[in-house]
């Protein structure tokens, strides 16, 4: 019972945040259809915001794809962790793959027996998928209706969204040090190299800092 309750509350809270994505996408000149397709097909919050954020910053599509894909690599590792638990074959494995994200993995791993873990994964995965897509549409339509994005602060909603995603990850000193270097590197590179490159360059910092224990 409490698995379903956990799944539902995570789904609705995270799903509602899809409206911020829909609005941010339209503010960055994506169409409503494109915003909705990103939520349906890409379906990974940070990666979706990255596509929009890089394009909004003037980056090329290749840059947007690369940044978004690097942010999505963790979903692959979640899948790796969940595979022995879900034990799926064929089309079920493909469906499960699409809903393997932070939230479905998080709720699954928080349970204390295998049956609840599987339930947590499916309920949260489908729940977030449903609400995230509905709210994306609502946010996109809303933003389309209001005109000038700056007048409504939508230009600040994008970095605020990134900050909200970043905040819980700043859990130790190493993460803070990395964040500090990333700000310096990204802003130093901004006037020198084409837009989008300063962002993806910060991957190097993660590799350098993560290399040693």
């Amino acid at each position: 019972m409490s698995v379903k309750r956990d799944s539902f509350s995570v789904s609705i809270t995270v799903g509602a945040y899809g409206s911020a994505f829909g609005a941010a996408a339209v503010a960055a000149h994506f169409s409503v259809l494109q915003a909705c397709l990103l939520s349906l097909l890409l379906f990974s919050g940070a990666s979706q915001f990255a596509v929009v954020g890089v394009i909004a910053a003037g980056g090329t599509p290749i840059n947007a794809i690369a940044t978004s894909t690097l942010l999505g690599t963790r979903n692959g590792l979640y899948g790796l962790r969940l595979a022995p638990l879900l034990k799926l074959r064929g089309w079920r494995r493909i469906i499960a793959a699409q809903i393997t994200i932070d939230e479905s993995t998080g709720v699954a791993l928080a349970q204390n027996n295998e049956a609840d873990m599987r339930k947590g994964f499916w309920f949260t995965g489908f729940g977030v998928f449903l609400f995230w897509n509905l709210f994306t549409l609502a946010g996109a339509l809303g933003a389309q209706a209001i005109g000038d994005p700056s007048a409504w602060g939508l230009d600040a909603a994008v970095p605020a969204a990134f900050l909200g995603l970043l905040w819980p990850r700043l859990s130790d000193r190493k993460a803070w040090v990395l964040a500090g270097f990333a700000i310096v590197l990204a802003l130093t590179l901004t006037p020198i190299v084409p837009a989008g490159i300063p962002i993806i360059s910060c991957t190097l910092l993660a590799i350098i800092i993560g290399w040693r224990k």
Binding site: A46, G53, A57, L70, I183, A195, I200, A206
Partner: peptide
């Protein structure tokens, strides 16, 4: 370890640039 740090690096850069 690196995989856990990549989102920190990219999200921070996205905050700064945006």
């Amino acid at each position: 370890r690196i995989n856990n740090l990549i989102p920190v690096a990219l999200l921070t850069a996205l905050v700064a640039v945006n």
